[in-house]
């Protein structure tokens, strides 16, 4: 197959990224810097959370079965927030799947390999994308309609209080690199097309796709950030950080699943099962 040149692959990935992800860094920054006519509703304690649930429930849980919504109201706040996180994750996994199909060569891979790449890649990609919705004080939620403070998330009871803080710490380091959406599109594609996931059958084909993305990423970063020549190696280091973040996250979720009365969405069960 014909190898697309650097600029066209970067452009293609950027367009697919803007098409498939409902939130992106440029949009999120508008909300986070207060440049919208309707600023996000700030959730910083139980009262504001309850108020937000009334206001945002249709946005947060637009696709949720009505039975789930009614039982949700009777559950404790930590369990409700855990469920919100799950639904947001499911939506992002769906978006990531569509984005992956737009990566040249991905859709032609063996279907089992596509599944494996998504299984291991989606949470790493999700946490890289989540950083766009974070600043040091909190996290943008519900398509920019709400902002949950970092302190409130830390104040939840254990183990739920341990859920988001490592993601904030990663996000602060990651956001310091000042990537834009065109950089992130290639970075997410590189996360997904990774030749060393367990159980892949056609490693060499995936490595060829990965090499081509990494090559384009390096050249794109040099032209998009000419003053930061170390950006590419710094970004490669983040791949290892993301893997560690996902390993710890998977352990925490499995722990919550065992010890708490919190069921896990079937799609997320598929991803976490026998992961690491």
């Amino acid at each position: 197959s014909q190898q697309p040149d650097t600029k066209s692959l970067a452009k293609q990935m950027h367009e697919a990224y803007l098409k498939h992800f409902h939130m992106n860094k440029a949009k999120a920054r508008v909300f986070l810097t207060g440049k919208t006519s309707t600023p996000p509703f700030v959730i910083h304690d139980m009262d504001t959370l309850q108020h937000a649930e009334q206001k945002l429930i249709t946005q947060l849980l637009g696709n949720m079965a009505s039975g789930d919504v009614s039982t949700l109201r009777e559950r404790e706040v930590e369990a409700r927030l855990f469920l919100f996180c799950q639904y947001a994750s499911v939506a992002t996994v769906t978006e990531l799947t569509e984005f992956a199909k737009a990566v040249p060569g991905f859709a032609a891979l063996d279907l089992n390999d596509q599944v494996t790449l998504l299984k291991y890649g989606v949470y790493e990609a999700l946490f890289a994308l989540l950083a766009s919705c974070m600043n040091k004080d909190g996290l943008l939620v519900a398509h920019g309609g709400g902002f949950i403070t970092r302190e409130f998330l830390k104040s939840l009871r254990k183990p739920f209080s341990d859920m988001m803080e490592p993601k904030f710490q990663f996000a602060m380091r990651f956001n310091a690199l000042e990537l834009d959406d065109s950089d992130l599109a290639l970075f997410v594609a590189a996360i997904i097309c990774c030749g060393d996931r367990p159980g892949l059958s056609d490693v060499s084909q995936i490595e060829r796709i990965q090499e081509s993305i990494i090559h384009v990423l390096r050249l794109h970063l040099l032209s998009n950030h000419p003053d930061n020549t170390l950006l590419f190696p710094k970004l490669l280091q983040k791949l290892a950080d993301l893997r560690q973040l996902v390993t710890e996250h998977a352990e925490l979720v499995q722990d919550i699943n065992k010890t708490e009365d919190a069921s896990l969405h079937p799609l997320l069960q598929e991803i976490y099962r026998d992961m690491y």
Binding site: T94, L111, N112, E270, D274
Partner: peptide
């Protein structure tokens, strides 16, 4: 792999099919 990842398979094979939430 297919048996254990039915929803991922479905998402990969059918772009118009939303995840059954």
């Amino acid at each position: 792999l297919k048996e254990k990842h039915k929803i991922l398979h479905r998402l990969l094979q059918n772009s118009s099919s939303p995840v059954d939430l």
